[in-house]
């Protein structure tokens, strides 16, 4: 049978894939997509927790699902602003590579 631990392991692998994408890739679009993968790994574990913790009335704990709904909304706002910054940056510098944008690097 599938237990809660299995879902958490899958969520951990997904988070690690997103983290590796952020650490390894130099393209800003890929970095944004990997950030979304990490956020949704957290969502997966929250939904799994909600399914495995049942209230006395026999319902899943839907507070976690409301929380996931808020996370999805905030992530959508983040993507909109992030991609707008990316387009503005591309207009100014003609690049989306993080190695070419290192003025703030000490």
């Amino acid at each position: 049978m599938i237990t809660l631990g299995d879902y958490l392991i899958v969520s951990g692998i997904l988070f690690a894939i997103g983290f590796a994408g952020v650490m390894l890739r130099r393209n800003l679009i890929i970095i944004l997509m990997s950030l979304e993968l990490m956020l949704n790994a957290a969502n997966l574990s929250l939904v799994a927790f909600s399914r495995f913790r049942v209230s006395p009335a026999g319902l899943p704990n839907y507070n976690a699902q409301v929380f996931v709904f808020f996370i999805i909304t905030v992530a959508a706002a983040e993507v909109a602003v992030g991609l707008a910054i990316l387009v503005a940056l591309f207009r100014a510098r003609q690049t989306t590579d993080v190695k070419d944008i290192s003025e703030l690097k000490f």
């Binding site: 631990g5 958490l8 495995f52």
Partner: peptide, 11 residues
Amino acid sequence: LAIVAPHIRAL
């Protein structure tokens, strides 16, 4: 963590 999903009513 080794708990199996309990039976639930549909949400």
